[in-house]
Design a protein around this nucleic acid. Structure first.
Lengths: 257, 257
DNA sequence: CTGAAACGTGCATTATCGTGCATAAACGAA
DNA sequence: TTCGTTTATGCACGATAATGCACGTTTCAG
């Protein structure tokens, strides 16, 4: 692969996701991390991006989605990234994994190029688009992508085709929780998302909930399922511990990162 | 092989793949790498490409907007746009329209923001993504987007979920033809795409086929349906007329633009 | 404060590049 | 025909670019 070709694709990914990581790029392009760093240095000198520790971002005003400034998102993205990476580690090779909607779940996708022969099922348009793009970038197309249809919602979720859900199964479902509490169970704020998550619990033997720290021990508007339905909870150390103990009592395996 | 012939082919490949490699070209044309480099140097001086270490790429903006100096390519994109715009004109407001896969169909999407209250159904991941992005930009979300699920193919098509297709209907289906001929009917080169198109013919009262001029009167590998199933054919004046007459005889309405 | 991860840099290796020179075919004028 | 010129191509070789590895330094989260 040509150097400029690689750099073009880096910029391409940067424009679709808002940020790129050195280690991740090195994996997808099968080159040493130092090569990626040199690429990023060149692109930065050309004013095309802003390097940060671990990767690069678009400079302020360059992004389409109106991202805020660097330090601001760095905090939130850091947590997001930690959870996402832990989630990716919980995925075995050669498995079928369902990814639900949401930013946390979306953050898992960049780490999937570590795996081989995954089958990815999703009802999120943004995740599907990202995975498809990744597949075009990496020379050996290692993943199979399957999309659940439905009507597109503003969160890029595709909802409404319950029939299609009944015809798939997965080794692992990974979804985001709107709220998770031992007593009040798994909850969501979005009706469609809640309905989808409820259906998801039935198609897999193992369920993984990604929970932002501020969502631990809290409850959203709509009840989805009792907390005991969750097999694994992934969050960060910043999350409040008492609710986690209660969840642990119910048999939920807690992973903090 | 003549030098100019070789250079034409180089440009041709460059426009289809986006980049070319010196070593690879030298192998395919059975010439020394020096010769290829001299070719690339000439083409660069003529402004047709951008040389880089190891090969060459199209210059920025040459792919996206079609400012190519290669007349064939520019013409091809212009034809695409003409057909797409005519197709958009054939869509009434407040209707349900199905868009199939393919570059021609994809080209229709930019023209859809003229309409009000469309419901767009598609099985193409790229079209869905584009429409969803558009919806985020335009403040009043005027279109409803519905996606047919399935397994993602390299052409961004989602195939395999025939059940989901049976549960939708549309006022209009717009799809691309791999070939269209009065005698041999509507054909495709891709099996999945053919299957999908066949299913599409049943869900709508009106079917619109977008046909590139070189596909008129020709036939692809796989038979889809008799030509009489097509209600409207959209192509350009450059298309050969005799096959169009035959199609007109069968009741197909011909729109040339 | 500390360990792990990321960073930058020098060096070695490999692939690619540019150029001068040689060969050969095509072409036109004597 | 014959000879000089032009053009296209190949080969050789010193120069340059791209990349990986190693090692010391910096950054960052806990």
């Amino acid at each position: 692969m040509l150097k400029s070709e690689r750099q073009n694709r880096i910029m391409q990914q940067l424009h679709t996701t808002g940020s790129v990581y050195v280690a991740e790029l090195a994996r997808t392009f099968q080159v040493d991390a130092v090569t990626i760093r040199r690429d990023l240095a060149e692109l930065e000198k050309a004013g095309q991006l802003q390097r940060v520790h671990g990767g690069a971002m678009l400079r302020a005003g360059q992004t389409a989605e109106g991202f805020s400034t660097l330090p601001e998102i760095a905090q939130k993205q850091q947590i997001e990234r930690r959870i996402a990476e832990a989630a990716a580690r919980s995925i075995p090779d050669n498995s079928v994994v369902f990814l639900g909607t949401g930013a946390l779940t979306r953050a898992v996708t960049p780490f999937l190029n570590k795996h081989t022969h995954l089958t990815i099922i999703t009802n999120a348009l943004d995740i599907a688009w990202y995975v498809a793009q990744q597949a075009k970038l990496a020379q050996p197309i290692i993943h199979t992508l399957h999309l659940i249809g439905g009507q597109a919602a503003p969160d890029y979720g595709l909802y409404g085709d319950d029939e299609a859900l009944r015809r798939v199964r997965a080794d692992l479902v990974i979804f985001e929780a709107g709220g998770l509490d031992a007593e009040r169970g798994l909850t969501h704020d979005n009706r469609d998302c809640a309905h989808m998550t409820r259906a998801l619990l039935g198609i897999s033997s193992q369920t993984v909930a990604l929970v932002a720290p501020e969502r631990v021990g809290r409850a959203g508007a709509i009840f989805v399922a009792p907390a005991s339905e969750i097999d694994v909870l992934i969050s960060v150390h910043e999350a409040p511990t008492p609710p986690l103990w209660d969840l642990s009592e119910l048999g939920v395996r807690i992973i903090l990162t």
